[in-house]
Design a protein around this nucleic acid. Structure first.
Lengths: 148, 148
DNA sequence: GGCTTGCATGGAGCGCACTCCAGGGTTTTA
DNA sequence: TAAAACCCTGGAGTGCGCTCCATGCAAGCC
């Protein structure tokens, strides 16, 4: 997953670079419709519809638009946000911390510093975790060697 | 945590290289007594006494010796086994899988191949996880950059 | 119109990895 | 030798991140 740096608009509020990182086996979105159903978003993000609704309940999502009959209609921005959430999830960040981050986004520009701090802390914990994993590799290799 | 290769006896059944990897803040063991109480082992390994007893219940430990009044007395081998368990825990291996591994050890030499396979699979999942974390670093860096 | 499929809600349930509790015996320390 | 500290057991409780359930409305198809 290489990151190309010539991305989107500098929309820091709405969030998200990373236009389209559907993982393997994840469906692309019906292009440019901007009003996706929950099952479309589920197929695209790999998150279950249960999880999508749950994310909303706990405050991890911005307000999601509804159809005239009350069904969710996700926008491209919502989907991008979910892509970021998915990435943060991979870092091991706790859901509560992601909610905190979402809160900061909601609160507007004056929270830039705090958001940045949160990401920097996450970055450090990722680095630490990588080091930890490296150290286990050494032990694993040693043991595997013994069994050969 | 560098691994020195001139370790112990080739005791593959009893398990464990890695004589003394007490992490930071973890107490060393009263040297060479070979009959440690549960709280000593807890202090040394960083695992709570609850967890130590629980590990025993679920079959993650070999039989632990007891004093004449029924209190646990851990041997050096038991402690070494716990060091390995701790390492496997860091890899993210599920407790159930560690129990499986412990079973294989109990069953004797003819399970070498299967044990090895388990460790190899774990090794691969560690490598995959490291890659995954690396990919999140890219996103994190990108976002942090935007906030600067 | 009936059937299937999809979406809605609030709330219960689950799997994991611990963590703690009650109620009792044992060991150490002063 | 008495108090304080430690250890035992079976079983209940916790926090996290989902996952599922019952029940009901809405849209598409034959």
């Amino acid at each position: 997953m290489t990151l190309t740096r010539q991305e989107q608009a500098p929309d820091l509020i709405g969030e998200e670079p990373e236009g389209c990182d559907r993982g393997p086996g994840l469906r692309p979105l019906p292009e440019g419709r901007d009003r996706y159903t929950i099952s479309e978003v589920s197929a695209h993000t790999g998150l279950s519809v249960h999880t999508l609704r749950w994310y909303e309940r706990i405050g991890l999502m911005p307000h999601i638009d509804r159809s005239h009959t009350g069904q969710r209609r996700y926008s491209d921005k919502d989907v991008s946000w979910l892509a970021l959430v998915n990435k943060l999830r991979l870092t091991g960040m706790a859901v509560a911390d992601m909610v905190r981050y979402a809160d900061l986004v909601r609160q507007g520009e004056h929270t830039y510093a705090e958001r940045r701090a949160l990401l920097v802390a996450t970055r450090q914990s990722v680095l630490d975790r990588i080091e930890e994993l490296r150290s286990t590799l050494a032990v694993l290799d040693y043991k595997i060697d013994l069994y050969s």
